[in-house]
Design a protein around this nucleic acid. Sequence first.
DNA 1: CCGTGTGAACAAATTCACAGCC
DNA 2: GGCTGTGAATTTGTTCACACGG
Lengths: 211, 211
Amino acid sequence: MMTLPGVPQVVIDRLPVYARTLAMLKSKGRQVISSQELGDELGVTPAQIRKDLSYFGRFGKQGRGYNVQRLGTELRRILGLEQEWTMVLVGVGNLGRAILSYRGFAPEGFKIVAAFDMHSEKIGTTVGGMKVHSVKSLPQYLKSSPADIGIIAVSAASAQDVANVLVDHGVKGILNYAPVALRVSEGTRLKNIEPVLALQSMTYYLKGVVP
Amino acid sequence: MMTLPGVPQVVIDRLPVYARTLAMLKSKGRQVISSQELGDELGVTPAQIRKDLSYFGRFGKQGRGYNVQRLGTELRRILGLEQEWTMVLVGVGNLGRAILSYRGFAPEGFKIVAAFDMHSEKIGTTVGGMKVHSVKSLPQYLKSSPADIGIIAVSAASAQDVANVLVDHGVKGILNYAPVALRVSEGTRLKNIEPVLALQSMTYYLKGVVP
DNA sequence: CCGTGTGAACAAATTCACAGCC
DNA sequence: GGCTGTGAATTTGTTCACACGG
């Protein structure tokens, strides 16, 4: 499946949610599901699910619904989840160490292959079975071992510099945990993980609530 | 400032980004900034910034721009960030422990006041200076000490049960780290932190790239 | 002259509603 | 009869462009 230029980003962002839910349903033995039922499960409208899927093809059977296994496989193919993706981690402070020991990436085919830090006291140590290299060796490392994705877990002050190095050396996607708005070139995908921002927009609605 | 009903969620989600950037600019000594310059900093259009702010009032000076300090303070007030918010954490596995030791919440006024787990071997232990209670005592705890926000860091299988308990006992916002789409009642705010989903939508764009 | 604030114009996303097929 | 797939209608969100004030 090619990357269709016309598919909105919001649609792409929902596909992994569908895929994950289908995997869960399959593990429970469910074989067929309608857009209505899947929508109930996820809290979205059935029309949205059908419209989203229609960007990529026709996966359902009229009068019946979708084959859970088949649709799950199709979505994983569309998203490019059939291959393994390599990632480098930059920053092994508190956050970086938690990311290294996080058990959620590997089963989904996302593999951290190297870790880097700028602080001399961390370099050479081993964290979660992974040796920590100097960030100065990152360009050289990426030249000999290109990685698909870079994870940034450094301070806000250093994050843009790290992003520049990653992009300059062929990384095509960045998962940013630093609390700063990074600027990356066109053609580089950037996703931010920001629990604090999530809380800060939530409080707008909470403050009005009478206890 | 009241919670205006007509303000789109997307606008609310951008305000913390503006607030954070203004705080950074202020710490660098910047006193005045135009929507153009702020937009350049963040990668958004100046019109969007002005329109977003216009939902809440008039904060700028024509011909000059915005006072960095003043606009930052206004945004924090609008978002409800002048008060401290209390949070309970449920689940002290790998992820929960990382959340407990995360240093980013407290400086922004988000305080974890208690931690809970369902596994007997964890109950009674101390993690990051915080005693771990049985999740069975969560309802009772919330009755005597209401919390604003619940953080869910349990398995996907248990997350909905935990969310139900939190909502039933007065929690008005949930920050969910479990890889599952939770359903909560109207009037409860839910934000999901899902690095794996972020990666899985990113790969849609990466797979097409020629190396 | 510069940059805000804002209706108006435009674009994007969602939902509707129904023809078509199982 | 039930449910998909999809144009059309509607809603939501973004950008334009300019009157106005400093």
